[in-house]
Write a protein that binds this DNA or RNA. Sequence first.
DNA 1: TGTACATCAGTGAACGCGCGTTCACTGATGTAC
DNA 2: TGTACATCAGTGAACGCGCGTTCACTGATGTAC
Lengths: 232, 232
Amino acid sequence: MNTVRGARERARIEVTAAIKDEARRRLAADGAAKLSLRAVARDLGMVSSALYRYFPSRDELLTALIVDAYDSVGAAAEEADARALAAGNPPRARWIALCEAVRTWALEHPHEYALIYGSPVPGYSAPLDTVGPASRVGNAMIAIVRAAYEGHGLSLPPLPAALRPEAVRMTADFAEGLPPEVTAALVAAWAQLVGLVSFELFGQFNRVVEDRATFFAHAAGQLAHGVGLPAV
Amino acid sequence: MNTVRGARERARIEVTAAIKDEARRRLAADGAAKLSLRAVARDLGMVSSALYRYFPSRDELLTALIVDAYDSVGAAAEEADARALAAGNPPRARWIALCEAVRTWALEHPHEYALIYGSPVPGYSAPLDTVGPASRVGNAMIAIVRAAYEGHGLSLPPLPAALRPEAVRMTADFAEGLPPEVTAALVAAWAQLVGLVSFELFGQFNRVVEDRATFFAHAAGQLAHGVGLPAV
DNA sequence: TGTACATCAGTGAACGCGCGTTCACTGATGTAC
DNA sequence: TGTACATCAGTGAACGCGCGTTCACTGATGTAC
């Protein structure tokens, strides 16, 4: 009985996955703004109205892709960090491994990267379901820096007075226990990391940076420095 | 005669500008991927085929908007720097003024910002005409750092050996005379600046950073530090 | 085990809509003599 | 200055296309007794 009902459920899971896979493929061709249920259905050999059995609207499908993308890059970051940790690497090396993992994931999934870190899709507004998955990379960064802080401590210059209240609030909200100047530096580093990856992926480095892997590795090291994880 | 021919030419210039203005308005509503000649024409009270007197295709109109956007943010950056220079400010203050100008421009023109620094428009590939305008902000940054270098010099840690050749090449290509470690730091800072602005504009700071102006000011100072313009 | 019924995936037609681009045209503006 | 002609902006119809979503339907799968 369970296995029988399971058959229908399993079919449902498989078709849902096939739709999302095909939608990811269409993303590459047309971009998120033009993602079309009809095109997805066509390439899947289904009739467009059939997709409504799986997603109540085009926007819900987009949301599913966004959640998947955040989870995918989040998992990549977490796994890279876990490997670095298991190899006995110090926090700085874990940080750099995480940055490299984000870049590698982005190069392998450029359109999913654009979906979550590129321009917002006009007319689409992300529901709250995306908030959790969206913070996985950031949380992994916090964990690394926290480990460093609880180990040998971190020394960063003091915050300007104007930023202190905001940094204290951010710390209480999502990085409890860290010094506020570390929290502020972390958030900035996170945005800067995505800036570096976006420039490479979105073509701003064309005719500017050629050896991008080497350049990125160096920049990731600078970011580590910025959050208080110096080279030596 | 000149004035008579000028009348037709002036009309042409005015209508061209009106089309671009309307297109910028549509950009806000629909985004670049869905920018539609017919919608622009409709809102302008023209018939869609009339636009072909001014732009040979939708993509050419997009290109014009992109070039305008790069010129607009480039001019904003240059002017902010010029004002800071005229006020007798040192390079670090000029740098921060430039960063603030980019952010302010982005907040005032979010859809044009997304057009140039957001995800690329699928199916559209920017022609070479955009390369020059695209480098104005970067060139302004180079000028500031060059002034500092030629004044008191800059001290940055030496480059890792692996990055040296690339940094030397970049320097020869567009920042002649600067030490290669400065060039590399500049390019990274440029990408990081855009990362900070994109995060704010694209919603990644929702539920994370609230006092964004203060946060950005601090981050711009950190970027200045990163290119060898320390606080004291 | 067998049967009656409920659930659900997928179909195909239809709704009303918008798109980029082409083309032959009208009529106003500008030019040459 | 006046006239014949060329240039050009803008029109309106048409081309072939794609879209999201709804709805009544068929037929297979699962459930309860």
